[in-house]
Design a binder for these strands. Structure first.
Lengths: 260, 260
DNA sequence: GAGTGGTCTAGACCACCCA
DNA sequence: GGGTGGTCTAGACCACTCG
C-alpha cells in the first residue's frame, strides 16, 4: 500500500494539476514567459501527456495561457476589455469603433439570421452581408457578419466596386434613426472562416454576440459577432472602467457561503 | 493503398465527426432523445473513443448535447434566453427576479472583488456575501456571490439569524438610489462550489457576468454571477425577444464574405 | 450488477514554426 | 531538421445512476 500517494486525491489529477499550475503561474511566471514543453511538464509531474494537456486546456480556456503550435506555451496577458455598448446607441461603423470592413457580398441571409429580422421578413430576399474585423491593441479580437436588408438602404446605387460597397452600405445606414438595440451573448466555437480571421484554430471557444438594430419599428440590421473568448472580456454599460484581471473562476480564495 | 479513405481529409477527424453528428442531430433526432453510447458510436464511425469524445465535447460546448455520467448523452433543447438587464436599472433581488438567496456570510472580499469597488475601498473590511441561485424553467441556470459592503447598508442590525440575514441586506440595499450599473461578460470554468449549484461537473464552461451597482458616487454592491454556458444565452436590452435558436456557430450555410 | 460517461495511460504520427 | 503543440489510438479503471 505504501505508494507515494499522500494526497488520497478524490479530485481528478488534471484538476489538481490545473490549480498547481495556476498557482505557479501567479507566483513564478511573468506575462509572455514561455513554459517548458508539454512532454517535459508531463514528466515533471509524473502524468501522461494527455492528462497534462487537459489541465493546460482549462487554463487556456480561462485566458491564462496561450498555446501556439510550433512555438510553445506562454503566459497570457490579462484579458482585454472590449466595449460592446450600449454606447448610447450608435450604428455599427459610426464614429470610429475599431471595426474594419474586409468584404461584402449580397446573398440571402442564412435561415437562423433571417429569423432575427422577425416574422414579417421575406427570407428569400438577398441582403448586404458585410464581413468586418475588430482589432484592439493591434490584434484581432472579433469578426462579424453584418446583415443589412436592401429595404433598409433603398437609396443605394446598384453598381459599386467591391471596395466601395461596404462603406456605401454603412453610409446609407447611418442616415436612419436608430431607435433601439438588443443583444445576446452565448458561447460558441469558431467556424473555419472566423477562426482564420481571429488567428485561432477552428473550434476555438468564442463569445457570440448577436445585435439587432431597430429603426422605424423594424429590424434594420443584424450583426453576429464572434469574439475570442480566450483574450476578451465583453463590457457593457457606460464607464469604460472595469479594467480588472480576476482569475476568480479558477483560483482559491474560498469565501464560501452555505449551500442550500 | 486502397483504403476506404475516400475523403483525403485534411481536416481533423473529430472536426469532421462533429459536423456529421451535428447534421444527424438536426435531421434524425428529437430534443431529449438519447444517443447510442460512446463505445458504440466510436465503433460505428470507426474511430477511437477519445476521438469521438472530442467531437461530443464540442457539441456539448455549443449547447447541442447534454451528457450525464451514468445516464447517457441526450439531445439538448435550445438554449434558454436569460435576461441580464439593463432592465432599467434595478437592484438585485428587487421585484421578483428569479434569484433565490441560499446563504450569507460576512467576510473580507477576495482581492479580485475588492478591486472592483475602486481605489478608495478598504480591502480588509468584511462585506456581506450572499450566495444566490437563479432558476429558469425549473432548472438552475446561474449562481452568484453578491458582495455588499457594510458601508452600503449601515442601518443593518448586527444580530440576525442566518435565514433572515440575506433578506435584510437586500431590503436595506433597496432603500438606496441606484444610479448606474456596468457589466462585463467573460468565459470561465465552474469552481467546485458553483458547479454543485449548477448541477454540473467542476470545470464546466460558464459565462461569468460581473455587475457593479453604483449609488451615491460609489460602488454599493458587486455581483459575480456564473451562468451555465451550455444551456444559457444572456440577453441584454429592452425587449425580451430574440427567442431564437441559431446553431450558426457550428453549421454550414456558408455565406462567406471575402477575407482581407 | 450492468451500463453510462469521466479519467488516465503510453505510446504514435502529423502540421507547423523557426533557425 | 529539430522542436513545438495538435491529433489519434487501444486499451484500462473509476464514479455514477438506475433498475
Amino acid at each position: 500500500m505504501g505508494t507515494t500517494q499522500v494526497e488520497a486525491a478524490q479530485e481528478p489529477k488534471y484538476w489538481h494539476l490545473k490549480t498547481v499550475l495556476g498557482d505557479a503561474l501567479d507566483s513564478e511566471f511573468a506575462v509572455g514567459e514561455v513554459l517548458p514543453n508539454e512532454r517535459e511538464l508531463a514528466a515533471r509531474f509524473g502524468v501522461a501527456r494527455a492528462t497534462l494537456r487537459q489541465a493546460l486546456e482549462q487554463l487556456e480556456l480561462e485566458g491564462r495561457l496561450q498555446r501556439r503550435r510550433g512555438v510553445g506555451t506562454t503566459v497570457a496577458p490579462p484579458r482585454i476589455g472590449v466595449s460592446v455598448g450600449p454606447s448610447q446607441g450608435s450604428w455599427p461603423g459610426e464614429g470610429d469603433d475599431a471595426w474594419h470592413a474586409v468584404g461584402c457580398v449580397e446573398a440571402p441571409a442564412p435561415a437562423a439570421v433571417a429569423r432575427l429580422f422577425g416574422p414579417g421578413y421575406d427570407a428569400g430576399r438577398s441582403v448586404h452581408t458585410i464581413r468586418r474585423v475588430r482589432t484592439s491593441d493591434a490584434q484581432p479580437v472579433a469578426t462579424d457578419l453584418l446583415y443589412v436588408p436592401r429595404a433598409s438602404v433603398p437609396a443605394l446605387s446598384q453598381l459599386l466596386t467591391p471596395a466601395a460597397h461596404p462603406l456605401a452600405v454603412l453610409r446609407e445606414l447611418h442616415r436612419l434613426e436608430l431607435e433601439n438595440e438588443d443583444r445576446a451573448v452565448e458561447l460558441g466555437s469558431a467556424r473555419a472562416e472566423d477562426a482564420k480571421q481571429l488567428e485561432r484554430l477552428p473550434g476555438a471557444p468564442v463569445l457570440v454576440l448577436t445585435t439587432r438594430y431597430h429603426s422605424g419599428g423594424r429590424v434594420a440590421a443584424v450583426s453576429v459577432a464572434t469574439y475570442r473568448a480566450d483574450t476578451c472580456r465583453l463590457t457593457f454599460g457606460d464607464s469604460g472602467a472595469m479594467e480588472i484581471t480576476h482569475h476568480d473562476t479558477a483560483s482559491g480564495e474560498d469565501d464560501r457561503a452555505q449551500a442550500s
